[in-house]
Simulated scan of single mutants.
Amino acid sequence: MNGKLTTVVFDKHVGITSDPVLSDIGDYQRLVGRLIYLTITRPDLSYAVQNLSQFMNAPKQSHMDAAIRVVRRSITGYMSKKQSTVSRSSVEVEYRSMASTVAEVT
């Protein structure tokens, strides 16, 4: 969080060698692709995923760590959502369904 993701070219220019380039970029590309698909239903992740997608051609270890962090946020955000109404039993569900059907017919 609040970390600055940089490109390989920038790191070479500045002289940073502590953040290695991933040996297999396919894992990163697949993960970011799935996160892009996830933004259809989770627009709150769009900004973070858009930033990660800028590094598809030469991802580093810090980029993969950030992508995994976004996955963790997406899971916790999904688990915290609550339903507005919860039925206590299937009989109550059937009753509500019947009541709405009768209301539509009359």
Rank of each mutant, 00 (worst) to 15 (best):
T106D: 15
M64Y: 09
M1I: 03
V86Y: 13
V102F: 13
N51G: 09
L38P: 05
V91R: 10
M64C: 01
G33T: 12
G3Q: 06
R72H: 13
V8F: 03
V86M: 14
S80R: 14
I40H: 12
V14C: 13
L45D: 02
S89M: 06
K4S: 05
V105I: 15
N51W: 07
S53F: 01
A67K: 03
T6C: 07
R34Y: 08
T76C: 14
R69E: 05
N2M: 01
Q83S: 15
S97C: 11
S84R: 15
K81H: 15
M1G: 10
T76E: 06
V32H: 05
L38Q: 04
A103K: 14
Y37R: 05
P43K: 03
V9T: 15
V70E: 05
P20T: 02
S74A: 14
D24W: 07
S53H: 06
L52T: 00
V102G: 00
S90C: 10
H13W: 08
V91D: 10
I25F: 03
T39I: 08
S100T: 15
L5R: 11
G15M: 06
S74R: 02
R42G: 03
S100A: 14
S87I: 03
S89P: 09
N2A: 03
S62L: 00
L45V: 02
R42P: 08
F55C: 04
I25T: 12
Y37A: 07
S23G: 03
T7N: 02
Q54L: 07
N51Y: 00
P59F: 06
L5K: 05
A67H: 01
S18H: 08
D44F: 09
Y95L: 14
H63W: 01
S87G: 10
D11G: 05
M98W: 08
M98I: 15
E92D: 11
V93R: 14
V86G: 04
V93Q: 15
Q61D: 08
A58S: 07
V8L: 13
F10L: 10
S18V: 06
I68G: 00
T41N: 12
T76N: 09
I36Q: 14
R42H: 12
I25E: 12
H13G: 15
I75D: 04
M56K: 02
N57V: 05
V102Q: 13
R72A: 13
I25N: 05
Q50G: 14
T7F: 04
R69K: 07
P43V: 03
S62N: 00
E94R: 12
S84V: 11
V21S: 00
G15V: 02
E104N: 11
R69F: 09
P43A: 00
K12P: 00
G26E: 08
K60T: 00
M56N: 02
L5C: 00
D11W: 10
S90E: 11
V71A: 10
V71F: 07
V14F: 11
S97M: 10
G15K: 04
I68Q: 04
D24M: 06
R88V: 13
G15Y: 03
A58K: 04
E94L: 15
T7D: 06
